[in-house]
Design a protein around this nucleic acid. Sequence first.
DNA 1: CCAAAAGTGTTTGTTATACACCCATGG
DNA 2: CCATGGGTGTATAACAAACACTTTTGG
Lengths: 228, 228
Amino acid sequence: MTGKNKPVSSRRLRFAVIAIDVVLFTVMDNALKVLLMHVHRPPFFIHRLGVPGGLIDPKETADEAAYRHLAEKGGFNDVALEQLGTFSAIDRDPRGRVVSVAYMGLVPQGKSGLPDDRDVCFQSVDNLPPLAYDHNRIVASAVEHLRTKIAYTAAVAAVLPKLFSFGDLQRIYEIILGYPLDKRNLRKKIMTLGMLKKVGKKRSGAAHRPAELYTFVKQKNSADKRVF
Amino acid sequence: MTGKNKPVSSRRLRFAVIAIDVVLFTVMDNALKVLLMHVHRPPFFIHRLGVPGGLIDPKETADEAAYRHLAEKGGFNDVALEQLGTFSAIDRDPRGRVVSVAYMGLVPQGKSGLPDDRDVCFQSVDNLPPLAYDHNRIVASAVEHLRTKIAYTAAVAAVLPKLFSFGDLQRIYEIILGYPLDKRNLRKKIMTLGMLKKVGKKRSGAAHRPAELYTFVKQKNSADKRVF
DNA sequence: CCAAAAGTGTTTGTTATACACCCATGG
DNA sequence: CCATGGGTGTATAACAAACACTTTTGG
């Protein structure tokens, strides 16, 4: 996203303004969803949707701006964000030159933290409508990044509750990736990451064998990584 | 890099200007080197060095600005650049708020393309002096990125001449990575990338068996990558 | 006893690593 | 003939992928 509430008057600018956009994912209703907000900037964007974002303030870094806008517009705090890249196509904002640093984050399933009745919502990343600005592109890049990243990190921890079963975890992976996984192989792969700890309780109450519950433990820093 | 020739007057700005910085690598004299330029911005930077860079113009993308500044300041054309990330620490440029998009590229060994007697030079990435702005940080990030990337792409093609021997290639890898490699294993790994073609000639003239010469062929696009 | 999800091992193929010797040439 | 870098293969370990049955519970 790019505009805040006041329109961008390009006459006041040296040549560009800097914004951030945040692609905030969650997993809900069996789908990978992204947080979208109502964008209305006639005559360019009439009742479109776009990811939350806004300008960088003089006294904050891009990272700080990303956290701030996400908190202000979506009510999300304590989300780990990661920089994706910077989008600078000249006409990405038809109102003026705006360069945007894109971020990506993940929040827990379901409990949205969203104030009710705001013009923000999560929508499935499949079949997104045309979004404002270059946000389809930004979201696509974020999805690709997310899919790559969960293969070798514990990024899904952010979307799972404190305690979860292996089945929960597998569902998250399958929804994000969009294809089914073998549960034995997934278990092995996840276990080799060494970030999962059995918590010693089980979840009963369903019409099947109770599931062991797990929790994520701190990621170990991976020393210096030899690539060969 | 951040400043151009005119000083950045922050009063004229909405809140920031956008620059690009280019970390241009080459391999020379048995070392991984980075292109540095003289930076003199009293009272902040007195005869320092920094990577080439400059402001983004109103009518160009960040990528275009990177190519332009690299050509203008270093005389390099036809270099493939890749975006590394955006650096936005508030005080990274003590003269005002400047957010910079960092790029990375590789040029062939030796033939520098540099106009003689300019205040630009390649320096070894080890033991760099304190650079202007946050350029030590940017270079460090570029080095890490480069090391990671050569493990699974033919990026080193950019630093090798059209024709090269396997020994040449191995030397490049070892210099970039900073540790020795097994030549049989490297050969297998490179061959599985499928980007190398034997050219049918040999290089004789040295006091040892003549080396087969190779050339890089186009990279094949890797379809959709399943991560599991 | 049935349905539903949980849990578990083995086999096979692929990839990564470690390792040592002969080859062709120039001097 | 010797020094120099060029070129090659194999054995082992680690990892990825495919695959099916038993367990425990609620209803």
